[in-house]
Amino acid sequence: MLTFVQQLLNGLTIGSFYAFVALGYSLVYAILKLINFAHGDLFGLGAYLGYTVFVYAFGVIGAKLGLWGLLAAGFVAAALGTAAAGLIIERVAYRPIYPIGRLPAVVSALGMAIFLSNFIMAVWGPRYLAYQESFIPTGFWEIGEFRIRVLQVLILVSSLVLLGILYFVVEKTTFGAAVRAVALDRETAALMGIDSLKVIRFAFAVGPALGAIAGVFVGMYYRQINFTMGWVYGLKAFTATILGGIGNIPGAMVGGIFLGLLEAFTAGYISAAWKDVFVFAALMLMLIFRPTGLLGEKVAEKV
């Protein structure tokens, strides 16, 4: 029972990370039909930006506003910085190329992924960096024999809240209707007077910002970050996107949580070394039998 609850908590936490990152893939894919391979590395960039703020602003902000002020500053800086990076990548590497064709866009995206991870390595170095304990909330609650960390609750609650807000924006507001219209058909949406560029910018700012928040959380949760983390989490998060059904927000959430739980339980009950094999096997099975994902709708094939 103890293992079960611990693994459940782990799974939910990891699943929240994946859900955060999956959203960025999902948004961009819904609008541009492009797998943004650079998204995983944007997430990594977020983790490094947060780290930098924590380390260098610790004395200044930490002293004035305390731990929570510092955390807020770190998250905001990471989210803004990464959103800016996302917008720059969209402007420089995608906007000129995606009208040409999808394959050139895929190569360009791969190029950006390689560029970003090496950029991180060039700036912050190839070694692991440690998130120090002084800027991580370390408290926990004990309920019976279970121990729930404040950080875990924070991660879970913020993922629910942020994804809820995003869901509300996309499903219930006028701007959200524009986003959905562009996702359905960009040209027709443009004829209806929708500024599709604005919608694309929205996807490339919000996705990376959420990814950055996940990056900082991952740094806090595992206490260490590395320039290769973008690719590792990026691939898993992408798997989550597909599992949940690409292009819809609750799908990214469901896929992320499902993947996190699958990972935690296979690691806990079967074998930690084989857990990634299970994850990717689940992906393959899902694609073979239900390519639209858990929550995806059937898309008619265009002739």
Binding site: V92, I97, V107, L110, G111, A113, I114, F115, A122
Partner: peptide, 20 residues
């Protein structure tokens, strides 16, 4: 050497722009 993959990534995007 340390930055070569960095340039490689940029070169990929640039090639696709100029010669799709």
């Amino acid at each position: 050497a340390q930055y070569r993959l960095l340039f490689f990534g940029l070169a990929l995007a640039a090639t696709m722009y100029f010669r799709p």
